[in-house]
Design a protein around this nucleic acid. Structure first.
Lengths: 373, 373
DNA sequence: ACGATTTTCTGAATCGATTAAGTAATGATA
DNA sequence: TATCATTACTTAATCGATTCAGAAAATCGT
């Protein structure tokens, strides 16, 4: 099964024997270490002939170029940006929206020749709380943490450039936000415009201690996850403008942003005595769960129940019927966040806020309520 | 909009003024640098009282603990593992299967107190080919590269521990593989057992130069993406055992592993004169596209067309009808790969291969062909 | 052919920490 | 009281590179 490599220069190239250093290469060629360094970093500083001898010697010794860590120390840069996200990864990136965001950051990092380090936030007890302090990075993109998460302060304490995503800006740490309020308002207005008067909301976590039950007004107001609060704000504004009472709109707070939780939430909402004719979900992931619940309860979408999501992930256009949802530019958000960080690394004064637009995408999951037709 | 932090110790704590070093802290307290280092790394080496004075001074100076890069150099470890994947991220991680894999690696890294660095493989021209050489990591997990990708050799040249995923083992670089052959065989046998005699296959890339057309036997044999080759091998074995001719089974090679490409592929297969009654997709992502194509062509699943996927991603159980597919333990695969790498970092002799099982999951997207009923 | 450039390479300081080995003080033991 | 451990810290070497200020050699202009 094992396909061996036949040992071109298998001399002393052991399994993973100590790696050669710049000094050894220098000695082999008979030049100074500075020259070897120049061979890699400033080719114009030496003759082509010598440069080639250096590379030849490097190859012989199995030297694969300057050690990134040592170079990082000397240059004063780690060569990577960190993305801090709510651990575990499966929660954080189970949502395609998050993956798209990461794609944007990754692209920005690559543009700048930087690596991308994943830094899980130690949400639970017993996990290493020092990940942020010990990550070898030049700056952080902080993604989707609660506003009161101590990690933000920890990151700030490292005196390293920061970009906050979906959080209010802080001194020296600019933010990238989405126009959640408008997006949510448009979603709710759409439903209200279709004639729905009994709405229900499926929210993901409002705070770090989400419990999986209906959230009262108090709880809604105190939401520390900014997207939750802003989206609820948008819904509420539309409901009030339509002359309806927001107090009558049940808001179920799920414990995670997954279809499973969306389903649980929808099952609760749809068995309320005053059953909603339309459900607003704070994310497409949750909306997918609403579809499942509806199917299970024998409600057809959009005839018996209208559903609006949020995010416009690829799957939203593949559901049956396709999901009406609120688009936001996820990749661009990551790109902007990444570039704002890179700009700071370059010494630029950070602007304080980038606000990205949202847009309602009407598909097949919404229609006028049955009684209207 | 900007919420300022009111300057507790705003003294000389400038925007992101040069960070303090261990020396400055030492000077402030009036001890040696070694003592400060010990305060952080070996608390038993100094009195609690002094340790607290050190931390107090650190706080005053805004010293957030030892610089990870310097520490990494001194300790001879970068403190991170790299995951090399086929760039761009959106391709690599658009598939939930890949995200789950990453989740596993991340978990293994965290167990070992290591960070996780994303290292995009420079597939296209004009991208930095040195990412692998310049990444500050202690080892690599190489995910889903073609067997002939030069990057594997580049990584090997760095003389750091490696784990290959879905690739044949090499000397000193163990592999983690899935039992693709058996999984694929089971999938094909399932269809054949249902009475299907006209099969079609939707494959993702066979080699790095995928073109988006039917792949002849030659092309199939030469496949350098191992999962593609093994899965085709499994299908073929089952077809031959059933006494059918593999040459008659059209294999469409998509250019990427996305639903869009799956749809394109299926449109081609389903308009062939000898139209397949069942389609085997090499991934669930592709299978999703087959669903779309079928819907567009007015074929209903499973009555007019049976579909089997591969991977068993969460969405597979949410499609209508739910997708019959081949399960494989993605998270575990990542976990195993990560742990194998960590074991090597700890000086253990790597075992050469871990083979993970697959399992057919029969859902609603497969049935006997219409003529049989 | 001579000073002025340019090219090519070297010496040595430095980045910010860790750690083995050593010293001084204190306490315990015989 | 002399001896042996401990405790609490310091000294100094080291990790592997980069970079600036020269030095030596080669090239140039006139």
């Amino acid at each position: 099964m094992c396909v061996g490599i036949n040992g071109e220069n298998g001399e002393k190239r052991k399994k993973s024997g100590r790696r050669a250093t710049i000094k050894e290469v220098a000695a082999r060629v008979g030049v100074s270490a500075a020259t070897v360094s120049n061979a890699y970093n400033r080719p114009d500083q030496l003759s082509v002939e010598l440069r080639e001898r250096v590379f030849a010697a490097a190859k012989e010794l199995g030297y694969a170029g300057p050690d990134p860590v040592a170079r990082g120390l000397r240059r004063g840069r780690a060569g990577a940006v960190g993305v801090v996200y709510a651990d575990p990864l499966s929660y954080a990136f189970a949502d395609p929206a998050a993956v798209m965001f990461l794609e944007g950051v990754s692209q920005a990092a690559e543009e700048a020749g930087l690596g991308l380090l994943l830094v899980p936030a130690p949400l639970r007890e017993g996990r290493n709380p020092r990940t942020v302090a010990e990550a070898a990075v030049d700056g952080f993109v902080i993604y989707c943490l609660a506003e009161d998460d101590p990690l933000v302060d920890l990151a700030l304490e490292r005196r390293v450039p920061l970009v906050l995503v979906e959080q209010p800006p802080r001194e020296g740490a600019p933010s990238v936000e989405t126009d959640d309020v408008e997006g949510a308002r448009a979603a709710a207005e759409h439903l209200l415009g279709l004639g729905h008067e009994r709405l229900g909301v499926v929210s993901f976590e409002l705070g770090r201690d989400a419990s999986g039950e209906l959230a009262d007004l108090e709880r809604q107001r105190e939401a520390t996850y900014r997207p939750s609060r802003l989206r609820l704000d948008g819904y509420r504004a539309a409901v009030k403008e339509a002359g309806l009472s927001w107090e009558d709109v049940p808001v179920y707070e799920a414990t995670e942003n997954t279809p499973e939780q969306g389903r649980t939430a929808a099952e609760v909402l749809l068995t309320l005595e005053r059953r909603p004719t339309a459900i607003l979900a704070l994310s497409d992931q949750l909306a997918l769960g609403v579809f499942e619940a509806a199917r299970k309860l024998g409600l057809s979408i959009p005839e018996d129940l209208s559903v609006v999501g949020f995010d416009d992930v690829p799957e939203a256009s593949r559901t049956d019927p396709p999901l009406t949802t609120v688009f936001q530019p996820h990749v661009e958000k990551g790109l902007v966040a990444g570039r704002m960080l890179v700009a700071q690394l370059g010494g630029e004064e950070p602007r304080s806020l980038a606000l990205l637009p949202t847009r309602l995408v009407v598909r097949g999951s919404t229609a006028s309520p049955a009684s209207d037709r």
